[in-house]
């Protein structure tokens, strides 16, 4: 890993936690024309045999993010290249330390008195026609009291492709954590030819308001019996067969009345508006490994696009 070192000349004076990736094609091989990053972000590119595919591991020092960490990653893919973005192991978000107080809004009772510094990850991605991004990280795991914001924007041209996996686990199960973080906010925006096709925003936090005489309803009550939730946004010509495969599976299902909740549950919504096909896959499972295995099996048609090696790195 790391044998294609970044060109030092192109690392500009950038803020802590900032990074930039530009991937293009040289002949038939994918070449990083820019790869720069600053602490605590670290980007590594292993050598990949599959033509036209470049892989980046998005790492953070110490294997996780602490309160106040801000990661900003800007990505461009050019000339028909395919960028696969992976992480090594789950992205851990540690407890947000109290201290430097974030701006508190008078009208927002949720923010008052918490005084925690959230962790923030921002990603801005531009993909022109015939190029693609496959964002296939391990899930985010927020520890008890962690506060996390993630904002990802993907600007695609009409013939660009994208697979955007975004998932979260309930915490460190070994320590008995089940949805005990303070706050998790994640937004994924997909723009195609300057039109916003999807803006998927998920906010998970404990409700702090009193609803007496009703008993308090904790975050884990709302999300149980599942401890892993995943969303996959798929778009563009390279994933058409994958969407068709999923739609076929989905439409073949018939649900008869059950007495208990299933171990794994999923849904597919197609976005057919404009200009071509896209889909949103949502999966929830009692075990993270089970969700991962299910996705690895179900998204199999993607293996042909990125190559077996890369596909296995993502789902094994």
């Amino acid at each position: 890993m790391g044998d294609s070192s970044p060109n030092i000349n192109v690392i500009r004076k950038i803020d802590a936690g900032a990074g930039r990736i530009v991937l293009g094609l040289h002949g038939s091989s994918a070449v990083f024309s820019e790869l720069s990053y600053t602490y605590p972000l670290k980007l590594l590119s292993p050598r990949i045999a599959h033509q036209g595919v470049g892989v980046i591991y998005n790492l953070t020092y110490g294997g996780g993010l602490v309160g106040g960490d801000h990661i900003y990653l800007s990505i461009e893919v050019e000339h028909g290249a395919i960028l696969v973005l992976l992480t090594q192991g789950s992205t851990k978000v540690f407890k947000s330390r109290p201290g430097r107080k974030v701006a508190v809004r008078d009208h927002d009772p949720r923010q008052q008195g918490q005084g925690v510094v959230p962790t923030k990850q921002v990603m801005d991605v531009t993909i022109p026609d015939h190029s693609a991004i496959f964002l296939l990280p391990e899930p985010v795991t927020c520890f008890r009291m962690a506060s996390y914001n993630q904002i990802q924007k993907f600007r695609l041209s009409g013939k660009a492709s994208a697979v955007l996996l975004d998932w979260i686990t309930s915490g460190r199960k070994s320590r008995g954590e089940e949805w005990e973080f303070s706050r998790y906010y994640s937004t994924n925006e997909l723009w195609v030819d300057r039109k916003r096709i999807v803006k998927d925003v998920l906010l998970l936090q404990d409700e702090e308001l009193d609803v007496k005489p009703l008993p308090p309803r904790k975050l884990c009550d709302r999300l149980s019996p599942y401890s892993c939730y995943a969303t996959v946004i798929l778009y563009g010509p390279l994933v058409e067969s994958t969407i068709q495969h999923l739609a076929g599976m989905y439409e073949a299902m018939t649900v008869f009345k059950r007495s208990t909740a299933p171990d794994l549950i999923w849904s597919l919504s197609c976005v057919n508006d404009y200009p071509s096909r896209g889909g949103i896959l949502r999966v929830a499972g009692k075990e993270t490994e089970q969700v991962k295995k299910w996705m690895g099996d179900t998204l199999q048609p993607l293996e042909e696009v990125v190559g077996t090696d890369v596909y296995r790195k993502a789902f094994w």
Binding site: T187, V201, L202, L203, R222, Y229, T231, S267, R282, A284
Partner: peptide
Amino acid sequence: AVTWPLGEIL
């Protein structure tokens, strides 16, 4: 924002 992902799936 959506605050109940299970509700979306169901």
